[in-house]
């Protein structure tokens, strides 16, 4: 898995690619933690390059969403989610707690 983080004017953009499972999810958690620890709570996660995600990835997303939504200081939104992964999010009931945008531009524009 590969992760890059970019600071934008109104939010931070995290782009993940490859496979997110129990072996690699800690890398994603670490990248997201680094942002929340720097008081950055408006985060767009670009998932266009993610080929696979198990519940280990869901765990990292849930932990970060809790941090971000606390005191209404922000949130994590998801962008360009591949169909397979969207189905996993639906199965886990995560579509109620994460906004999903078709592309990065509209996700970034939501902040």
């Amino acid at each position: 898995m590969n992760i890059t983080t970019k600071s934008l004017k109104h939010c931070d953009l995290v782009s993940a690619s490859g496979r997110i499972d129990s072996a690699t999810a800690p890398q994603l958690a670490q990248a997201l933690d680094a942002l929340t620890k720097s008081n950055k709570f408006k985060i767009v996660l670009d998932m266009s390059g993610v080929e696979y995600m198990s519940s280990a990835g869901l765990r990292a997303l849930l932990t970060t969403q809790r941090q971000c939504r606390r005191y209404n200081r922000g949130e994590v939104v998801l962008a360009a989610v591949p169909q397979n992964i969207k189905e996993t999010l639906e199965l886990a009931g995560f579509t109620d707690i994460f906004k999903i945008y078709d592309d990065v531009v509209s996700a970034v524009g939501s902040f």
Binding site: S55, L58, R59, L62, Q65, R66, R69, A92, I97
Partner: peptide, 9 residues
């Protein structure tokens, strides 16, 4: 969100 648990998922 605050009461979500990943256990059992």
């Amino acid at each position: 969100l605050s009461r979500r648990s990943i256990g059992g998922l």
